[in-house]
Each structure stands twice: as structure tokens, then as C-alpha cells.
């Protein structure tokens, strides 16, 4: 069927239904090769357990409820931290993009703080907050803050001044000008910030959970290391990869919905 389609329409090389699957070919191939390598003993299971073993470990943890609980805890920390840090970053980006005074007042300070790697604060954060939830939320929020702040600021600064002039000529109030011109104009840049921030969000959370936590995916991996449960360690790593992909896909869907006017987001 698909073959006939591509023959009768020589200009469309891609068949839409296969398009979504194509991206999964490489990951699946890697897993297949890995399985073969483990089963044949080419890779010792002490170094890397077979995918089937990892899957089995996942199934056991799923049955005990441990896996779901840890994923949920990590997911919750990531989202709350993202909302707090992203919200504050967005607010500062707006304020400094729209007001010269606010920009002069805070931008230099923020740029200085930005140059401190936020993971370097872990010892300090543990001293401040101990190892409870607020420590992780603080680190995630701090990590997420800067990409969102910088890209919101950049987006607002680079809105076409000719469009702003046009809006003023046509009698837009400040509120209307923001809603109809400045915010939609800054949106592509804000999304770049969000996608950067999603990456930093997972990174920060995993590091924080590995070092100081009593629940969550990072904690699960560290516990498994203590007991030499290498299949669970590998399982945790694979789940990170899946969660990262999920967050990225979610932001892509949002982009598609809100930037449908932009030629770059039309179906290619």
C-alpha cells in the first residue's frame, strides 16, 4: 500500500504514517544489538546487563510499586521546580525587556549569578535546606531560571521595532501592544528558553537526587549501586532518557500549537 502510494506520487518520498516511526529505528536497533551482545557473552553482564534483564528488573519494581513512586516523586520535583524557576525567570525577562529601569537595576546582578555553576551550590544548599524537598526544588528552580530569563529578555528585545511603531500608530494601548505584538513576537525565543531549561531541569534533578535524597529516580539508582543491582542502575538511566524525550516532545507540541503562524513550524 505504502509502496504504491510512493510510486503514484513520485514527489512525496515520505509516507506520513511511517514518519512518526522513523525516529525510533536507531534506538531500537541499538537495543537489539545490545541484547545480542549480552546473550552471546560478548559484553559481560557484570558490565552491562541484557535489555531483557533490565526490563525484568523494571517489571519487578513496577509490581512492588517502587518504580512508579520514584518516578512520580522525581516528576513532581522537576515540574514544581520548573514552574517556580521558569515563572520567576519569565517575570524578570518581561520586566527587564520592557523597562529600562528594571533592566539597569537587576541585569548585572543576574549575569553575575548566572556565571556561578548552580551545581556548585549543592554543598551550601545541603547546609541550608538539609536533604528534604526544598533543596531539590531550589536547585532545579535556579538551573531553570537562567535559560528562561535570558531567552525571554532576548525575545522581547528583538521584537521588530517597526511592528511596535505600527501598533502605536494604530492606537494600541500598552496592554494591547504587549498582547498583540510584543508577546507573540517574543514567543519563538521563549520556547528556545523552555527547551534549554527542560534539559537543565533533568540534569539538575538527577545530580541533586544522586547526592542528597531519600526518594526519587536518582536515589533509586544510588541504592541499587550499593547492592550491586546493575540492572536497576541501567533501568534508571534509560528512564531518564525517556523522560527527557517526553519533556522535549511536550514542548514541541506546545510550539506547534502556539507558533502555527511561523513558516518554520509548518509540516516539512
Amino acid at each position: 500500500m505504502s509502496l504504491i502510494d510512493s510510486v503514484s506520487f513520485p514527489r512525496s518520498f515520505r509516507v506520513p504514517r511511517l514518519d512518526g516511526l522513523i525516529q525510533w529505528i536507531v534506538p531500537l536497533a541499538i537495543i537489539a544489538i545490545w541484547q545480542v551482545a549480552s546473550v552471546t557473552g560478548f559484553v559481560p553482564t557484570r558490565v552491562l546487563p541484557a535489555p531483557s534483564d533490565v526490563l525484568l528488573a523494571g517489571w519487578k519494581l513496577l509490581l512492588s510499586g517502587e518504580l512508579a513512586r520514584n518516578i512520580w516523586v522525581s516528576f513532581w520535583r522537576a515540574s514544581i521546580g520548573f514552574l517556580i524557576g521558569g515563572g520567576i525567570g519569565f517575570a524578570f525577562g518581561l520586566a527587564n525587556g520592557l523597562s529600562q529601569l528594571s533592566n539597569k537595576l537587576t541585569d548585572t546582578t543576574l549575569q553575575m549569578v548566572r556565571n556561578v555553576p548552580h551545581l556548585a551550590l549543592i554543598p551550601l544548599v545541603i547546609l541550608w535546606f538539609g536533604i528534604d524537598e526544598s533543596a531539590k526544588l531550589f536547585l532545579v528552580a535556579l538551573g531553570v531560571f537562567f535559560p528562561i530569563y535570558l531567552n525571554t529578555l532576548h525575545g522581547i528585545r528583538t521584537v521588530d521595532p517597526q511592528l511596535i511603531e505600527m501598533g502605536r500608530i494604530y492606537g494600541m494601548t500598552d496592554g494591547e501592544l504587549f498582547r498583540r505584538v510584543i508577546f507573540p513576537g517574543a514567543l519563538p525565543s521563549i520556547f528556545v528558553g523552555i527547551r534549554f531549561a527542560l534539559g537543565i531541569m533533568w540534569l539538575t534533578l538527577i545530580v541533586a537526587e544522586t547526592i542528597a535524597a531519600s526518594s526519587g529516580l536518582g536515589y533509586m539508582a544510588m541504592q541499587a549501586r550499593e547492592f550491586m543491582l546493575i540492572d536497576v542502575v541501567v533501568l534508571s538511566i534509560l528512564i531518564y532518557a525517556l523522560l527527557g524525550k517526553l519533556a522535549d516532545s511536550a514542548s514541541r507540541v506546545l510550539e506547534r500549537l502556539t507558533l502555527s503562524w511561523h513558516p518554520a513550524y509548518w509540516k516539512r
Binding site: L163, M166, G167, Y170, R180, V181, G185, W261
Partner: peptide, 18 residues
């Protein structure tokens, strides 16, 4: 100077001012 994120009709509506 059309708003790229507004359809043609809403771009024209911008001209109505108040």
C-alpha cells in the same frame, strides 16, 4: 508591517484603532 502571527483579517482589524 503585518503581524505575522495574526491572520489576514485580524491584521486588517488592527486598522480600526479604538
Amino acid at each position: 508591517r503585518l503581524l505575522p502571527w495574526a491572520r489576514v483579517l485580524s491584521n486588517v482589524e488592527v486598522g480600526l484603532g479604538r
